[in-house]
């Protein structure tokens, strides 16, 4: 009987485990950080409420602003390379057969390597005294040295990130491409579509969903990058490759400035959230417009 459904508030207890897990894994740690960010902590027993002072200070800190600029530049550089390159690789993969499996496994290899190992690999690979890449470039007459030249350090970092993460974009795109039924390709062929038109009108609409995921993942990940540059360049030369997370780690762990570091963290977190929100909404609003024609 639809009208006599049992009604029992104890059902709310069913969501309790999830609430507890989320509380301990996300909400409470985050609130702790927020709590630190509004206090000046001298030692365990002496702390003072300082309001939004740390936020003001962080946002005016030139080192923060520089690191932020570098971070944005880095994220957009790697996205601009990895997304098109990943799509290109995915399109180049055979759709079926033995080679598909072999190539997919090869593509997945960089994703399986621990991040600090990736950093170490490139740290050695690009060294100008013993590294294959570094020595090779120098042999070709290019005075390559990423430990002293900021541009070289940047190029090495970007190359490393592209090597590490293009596979992810390629695998996601490949999954998207396999969802295109063969009839779509055939229809486009019969319609006389060019290769570009096939990509633009047959493949891109199907790739949309996975590309949103790929961009979001890569945006967040690259914005939070820490381990690899830490191992590869240590933030140098000078501060040339010091990104936000590394600056934050120096502040929080190195100098034990808990208050400013907490404010920094909250700002950092909000920026990532903001970027993702802007991106997601701009992509999804296009879709919604299409639906409102009815």
């Amino acid at each position: 009987m639809a009208t006599n459904k049992p009604y029992d508030n104890r059902a709310w207890l069913g969501v309790l485990p999830v609430l507890l897990i989320v509380a301990f894994s996300a909400v409470i740690p985050l609130m702790t950080v927020v709590n630190y960010s509004v206090q000046d902590i001298l030692d365990f027993n002496s702390r003072f409420y300082v309001g939004l002072d740390w936020y003001r200070e962080t946002l005016q800190d030139p080192r923060f602003i520089d690191a932020f600029g570098r971070q944005v530049l880095f994220s957009f550089s790697v996205l601009a390379i990895e997304i098109p390159l990943g799509i290109l690789v995915a399109r180049g993969l055979p759709k079926s057969g033995v080679w598909t499996s072999i190539l997919l496994i090869l593509l997945a290899v960089p994703l399986l390597i621990p991040w600090n190992v990736v950093g170490t690999i490139w740290q050695i690979y690009a060294r100008s005294d013993i590294g294959l890449l570094g020595v090779g470039l120098n042999e070709l007459g290019l005075a390559f040295n990423y430990t002293s030249n900021p541009t070289h350090a940047w190029l090495t970092l970007i190359a490393m990130d592209v090597w590490h993460w293009t596979s992810l974009v390629a695998l996601l795109s490949f999954a998207g491409l396999t969802s295109v039924p063969p009839a779509y390709y055939q229809a486009a062929e019969l319609d006389g579509a060019s290769k570009w038109q096939v990509f633009r009108y047959v493949e891109m609409p199907r790739l949309g969903g996975v590309l949103v995921i790929a961009v979001l993942l890569r945006l967040m990940d690259s914005f939070m990058i820490y381990t690899e540059p830490f191992v590869l360049t240590g933030g140098g030369p000078g501060n040339a490759t010091t990104f936000l997370s590394q600056y934050l780690a120096t502040m929080a762990v190195g100098q034990f400035d808990l208050g400013p570091a907490a404010a920094f963290s909250v700002i950092y977190f909000l920026f990532i959230l903001l970027f993702c929100w802007i991106f997601y909404n701009s992509v999804m609003s296009d879709d919604n417009e299409a639906q409102h024609h009815d």
Binding site: A183, L190, Y201, V202
Partner: peptide, 25 residues
């Protein structure tokens, strides 16, 4: 030209552009 078992259309294009596609291509 071919019509398939299930409707094959260019999903990002409106109906008019879908119709025009073979001529434009």
């Amino acid at each position: 030209a071919q019509v398939f078992q299930f409707p094959v259309l260019y999903e990002s294009l409106c109906v008019a552009d879908n119709l025009a596609f073979p001529l434009r291509a």
